[in-house]
Computed example of a mutant assay.
Amino acid sequence: MRLSAEQLGWTAQGRRLLDNVSLDVEPGETFGLVGPNGSGKTTLLRMLAGLRRPHSGAVLVDGRAMSAMRQRDIARCIALVEQHADTTDRVTARQVVALGRTPFLSPLRPWSSQDEAVVSRALDDVDMRHMADRLWHTLSGGERQRVHIARALAQQPQVLLLDEPTNHLDIRHQLSILRLVRQLPITVVIALHDLNQAMDCDRVGVMEAGRLIDMGPPGQVLTAERLHHTFGVHADLVDDPLDGSRIMRFRTVV
């Protein structure tokens, strides 16, 4: 499924949070969003998910204006994992993941064994099935994050949007989640702080002050000059001794 943004704009309290942002994410592509805090990544993801309507411009899903789609129809094809999503309800991890099936349920299509199987598979994918019956408030931050990712997977989306999904995760689960995302046969847009993780994306876009200032293959976009200008760091590209891939070594700008 192709996801497009056409000249998106958003202003809040006189501040331009998104400024004329346009991009096309191709079917099956993994597109990384990088940029400093406050650069507009979260605002853009929420618009692409249909949770916030742009003040100007449009979001298109396979060429169809999202503004003309019902929220249920959007939820049947697009899932978002936000940075901070919490609940005060006394619910179990399995019940949170089961919420991902909500767009597909109706009086004529009640909960079924198929839904149960989808939820169990999603819990397996994020290594949380053994904690499925744990209450939400007993889970750590990293465990909650994995449950939210499982909830999104349970939607069986054609487009998966993730806002810094490795926050709170230990290194083992960071790597396993990113590996899982890369293997999914769907369109993915993922906001990342770790620029080395962004190197594994098909393309990356660099956000700065609400604008998408660069876009393309990671090796062409995440140059030493770009990292110096946008992130205020010096970076050396070196070869990983294990597999020969290019990785970054950072030094702060003095």
Results as ranks from 00 to 15, higher is better:
Val81Met: 07
Trp136Arg: 07
Leu123Tyr: 06
Leu161Thr: 00
Leu99Tyr: 14
Pro157His: 08
His173Gly: 01
Phe104Gly: 05
Val119Pro: 10
Leu3His: 09
Val21Lys: 13
Ala98Phe: 15
Asp170Glu: 07
Gly40Asn: 03
Gly57Asp: 05
Asn167Ala: 15
Arg70Gly: 09
Ser106Asn: 05
Arg72Tyr: 01
Val61Ala: 04
Pro107Lys: 14
Val254Thr: 10
Gln13Ile: 00
Pro110Cys: 09
His173Arg: 03
Asn20Pro: 00
Gly244Ser: 12
Val96Thr: 10
Leu45Val: 09
Val81Gly: 01
Ala132Lys: 13
Gly9Phe: 06
Pro54Gly: 12
Leu51Ser: 08
Ala132Thr: 10
Thr43His: 02
Leu227Lys: 00
Leu227Glu: 00
Ser39Asp: 07
Ala5Trp: 15
Leu237Gln: 11
Ala122Glu: 03
Ser22Leu: 08
His173Gln: 08
Leu108Pro: 00
Leu178Asn: 06
Leu227Val: 01
Pro157Thr: 02
Ala79Pro: 04
Arg76Leu: 09
Gly141Cys: 12
Asp133Gly: 12
Val253Lys: 11
Arg203Ser: 01
His137Leu: 11
Gln145Arg: 06
Arg134Met: 05
Gly100Trp: 11
Ser112Lys: 14
Val206Trp: 01
Arg144His: 12
Pro157Cys: 01
Ala5Leu: 09
Ala209Val: 03
Ser22Arg: 08
Met215Lys: 10
Ala150Arg: 14
Ala12Asp: 02
Leu60Ala: 05
Glu208Lys: 08
His193Ala: 01
Thr88Lys: 08
Arg94Asn: 11
Arg129Asn: 04
Gln156Ala: 15
His228Trp: 05
Ala75Met: 03
Arg72Asp: 01
Gly232Leu: 02
Gln13His: 14
Met131Trp: 07
Arg146Lys: 14
Pro217Tyr: 09
Gly38Met: 00
Val204Leu: 03
Leu44Glu: 00
Ala152Cys: 13
Arg46Phe: 03
Leu23Met: 13
Ser106Met: 05
Asp214Met: 04
Pro217Arg: 15
Leu8Gly: 13
Arg251Phe: 05
Leu184Met: 12
Asp163Glu: 04
Ala93Asp: 11
Leu123Pro: 09
Gly216Leu: 09
Glu225His: 14
Arg64Ser: 04
Pro165Phe: 06
Met128Tyr: 06
Met131Asn: 01
Thr166Glu: 04
Arg52Phe: 00
Glu164Cys: 13
Gln114Pro: 10
Leu8Pro: 15
Pro165Val: 02
Met215Gln: 15
Val21Leu: 09
Val233Tyr: 12
Asp214Pro: 14
Asp243His: 12
Leu44Trp: 06
Ala49Met: 08
Ser67Pro: 02
Arg90Val: 12
Pro27Ser: 08
Leu99Gly: 03
Ser113Phe: 09
Leu161Ala: 11
Leu212Glu: 05
Gly35Phe: 11
Cys201Ser: 13
Phe250Pro: 00
Met131Phe: 09
Ala122Thr: 07
Leu99Ser: 07
Thr87Trp: 10
Arg72Trp: 04
Asn37Leu: 05
Asp125Met: 14
Leu161Val: 02
His229Met: 08
Gly205Val: 00
Asp243Leu: 07
Ala117Tyr: 12
Val253Tyr: 14
Gly9His: 13
Gly50Val: 07
Asn196Leu: 06
Gln174Val: 10
Trp10Arg: 15
Ala12Met: 14
Pro27Asn: 08
Asn167Tyr: 13
Gly142Cys: 10
Ala85Lys: 08
Asp239Arg: 15
Val59Tyr: 11
Leu44Cys: 01
